[in-house]
């Protein structure tokens, strides 16, 4: 293991109300297949093991209650141990709602992928309903030979309603160095978020990140995606390291997913 020590998560002030929950998944290899020695749901996260695909263990996050609501402190930690292949998805979109307080909810995802392991993090989109206020982070630690496929999508408001507020940070550390560090802030109070430099009226945005040591020798090529700007647009680009990132904006969730799926073929 050459992974750096996990970063300290800033301590949130104690919420007067709200759910505190941490779900944990850990995948390991045993006899040529991937097992799940840890599969602990908590609070709104119920974890179901799905039928394996080849050597890959698959887990589905099922929402057991409405979350995140304002004031909630939610966390998922997933680890693919050395040589393991883990695929995590979710049964439904995550709906951020206002809840009983205007305090933000936090939703932190920590993913660790050890040597020769592979992790797919492919949940359904996050929908930021009117009045919601969410801070989401993804903190990812990758060993030099680890592989990762991660997709994250934000839908700003349900159909016909104004968006909630969402602030995100995606940090990917690989072999002790920061490969990607990105913050985004959308919705009421975020300066310029709806203007021509950021989303230009689009209500759906997302990214697909693929980290693969094979890109060291064969970097991914730039691809411009999206035939007509009114249906959204995306680019697939190599990062300054063995990784490809697709960045997309679209009018809605369907067209966003179409762009990201095109990038992933």
């Amino acid at each position: 293991m050459t992974l750096a020590a996990p970063p300290t998560v800033p301590a949130a002030p104690r919420a007067a109300v709200g759910v505190r929950a941490t779900a944990r998944v850990s995948a390991a290899t045993s006899g040529g297949t991937t097992t799940l020695p840890v599969l602990d749901g908590d609070g709104p996260f119920e974890l179901r093991r799905l039928r394996s695909r080849g050597t890959e263990a698959r887990v589905c996050v099922v929402g057991a209650m409405s979350a995140p609501l304002g004031g909630d402190r939610l966390r998922i930690e997933a680890t693919a141990q050395q040589g393991a292949a883990l695929h995590i998805t979710s049964a439904a979109a995550t709906l951020a709602l206002r809840g009983p307080t205007t305090e933000p909810a936090t939703y932190d995802v920590q993913l660790t992928v050890e040597e020769h392991a592979e992790l797919h993090w492919l949940p359904k989109p996050l929908i930021c309903a009117a009045g919601s206020n969410l801070r989401q982070t993804w903190t990812i630690h990758l060993a030099p030979t680890a592989r990762l496929v991660l997709r994250e999508e934000q839908i700003l408001g349900r159909t016909g309603e104004p968006p909630g507020h969402v602030a995100t940070r995606l940090t990917v550390r690989r072999a002790g160095r920061t490969l990607l560090d990105q913050e985004a802030e959308y919705g009421p109070g975020a300066p310029g978020w709806d203007g021509p430099a950021v989303l230009a009226g689009h209500r759906a945005t997302g990214q697909l990140l693929v980290v693969d040591p094979a890109f060291e020798n064969r970097p991914p090529e730039v691809q411009l995606l999206g035939d007509s700007p009114q249906d959204g647009q995306a680019v697939l680009t190599p990062l300054a390291g063995p990784a490809a990132l697709a960045t997309a904006t679209a009018p809605d969730a369907l067209r966003l997913r179409h762009l990201l799926d095109t990038a992933h073929t």
Binding site: Q182, A184, E185, A197, V198, L224, V235, T247
Partner: peptide, 22 residues
């Protein structure tokens, strides 16, 4: 460390910069 520095992103600036380069 450098994590303290802002990392704010704008999807359309990234997308259109790459398109413009072509």
């Amino acid at each position: 460390g450098t994590d303290a520095l802002p990392a704010a992103s704008a999807p359309l600036l990234d997308i259109t910069a790459q398109q413009h380069a072509a």
